[in-house]
Design a protein around this nucleic acid. Sequence first.
DNA 1: CGTTAATTTGAGACCATTCAATTTCGGTGG
DNA 2: CCACCGAAATTGAATGGTCTCAAATTAACG
Lengths: 256, 256
Amino acid sequence: MPDSNVQPLAMMLEKLQRRSTFTVNEAAALLGLPFRLAALNAASYIVREGDDPQYCCVILSGWAYRHKTARNGARQILAIHFKSELVGVNHGLLAAADHSIQTLSAADVAYISHDALLKVAAEFPNIAQALWRETLVEASVAREWIVNVGQRDARQRIAHLLCELVVRQNAGPVPASYSIDWPLTQEQLGDATGLTAVHVNRTVQRLRATGLISTNRRSVTILDWPALQQAGAFDQAYLHLPEAQPADMRQRPAPV
Amino acid sequence: MPDSNVQPLAMMLEKLQRRSTFTVNEAAALLGLPFRLAALNAASYIVREGDDPQYCCVILSGWAYRHKTARNGARQILAIHFKSELVGVNHGLLAAADHSIQTLSAADVAYISHDALLKVAAEFPNIAQALWRETLVEASVAREWIVNVGQRDARQRIAHLLCELVVRQNAGPVPASYSIDWPLTQEQLGDATGLTAVHVNRTVQRLRATGLISTNRRSVTILDWPALQQAGAFDQAYLHLPEAQPADMRQRPAPV
DNA sequence: CGTTAATTTGAGACCATTCAATTTCGGTGG
DNA sequence: CCACCGAAATTGAATGGTCTCAAATTAACG
């Protein structure tokens, strides 16, 4: 179990505060939500498509992803989530889950019942608005994913996804040379970008060969952040992060 | 101007009531929202990407669509909206619009200021929840679009989109032989499905040749609804409509 | 009835897929 | 600590769906 011993929901609050402001009472109400901790193995289901779960969940450590399986068995990954994010709220206001949520790596989570969350939201309109706002951002990200699979070629798609994950993991500017843990297999990367694992492999090789990134089985290192952003036609506006530091990030020189 | 002379917002309320229930006071508050009517030509912008509009808008007649332009100039259509739908609410809680909203045909709309809408939402938590729920459905639809462009071939993509629009336009079951006005050009249909106009053309021809639909410049007729659903691997669960009448729809025989 | 946008057609090129086999890496047990 | 195992990554070659680039035809509108 991670730093969650202190106050598991504190990191959730902090993340919400990037886009919303709360009074002391509101913050206390959020931190006071009842929760149940769980340590999940990799590939554990948090929500299964078709279910009607009674809880949502904060990711305390590890990665999770949303996905949906088409009739022909093809799987499409719809979003990727990590530490501090609250997932599955959507299923509180809608009957049947329209997609699955599953861990990508081993993960610690805190389950919160929809009842409790909606009660707090009803009591504090500003909290309801903050949660609504997060939903709007999720929708914005989903739209960008439509653009990604609909309009970009393999190289752009992969570069764009990499950029999104790097920016979302960094509150501040992206350091010149930056490594992130990377629990996605190339097959999963293909499921997220609408490509086959084989083609993902060849495309990642090209990204490496051109010096944009380096990879190993468990991590990805960004070697040329400006070039990667350009390769992915990446513009972080759709993430609706508070202070955009694009200038900051772009001016950082590539590492030697 | 359409039947809006009586009460333009009534059809919006009715649509919201498909997924939410309101007290008399809440309904009155929604109907009492101040609005400004406008008659828009085809291809008029309601919201432009990057703007920070102060209003959202109810479509009283006609079609509208959301879209985004990638760096290379390629346009991706993200959603299609028609009569009774409230669009652009997202821009009330987020600073800069992350996509554009534009009319597809001539349209009558009622503008509602975000201020007024958010005030009503703050006063009536149940209204806030209803609007939040609609946002969740929009996100669900966006996710299905990711699946559409990410996992399906041209024939499936087009059939699926057709199915979605047909179901969303019909509150109840889809009649055996059913025509809808169709303001989308094949180029726009391509922008919505991530295909070129040329390939859309060839694919639509195949759908016609196999007897699933017939088309002319301004309308589409569904000739074999069960077959069209199958061709698109369509399952309406993601639309989160109240009473699913899939059985009803599937049992209807194809017209002679 | 002319003008313009939209649809349609053809042929060639290309990006991505498929299928299959091989290699590498990381974890595991002895 | 090393050999082994299985999953993941990598490679090759052939196929195919979709794109590109024109050019021709059709339908809608004033």
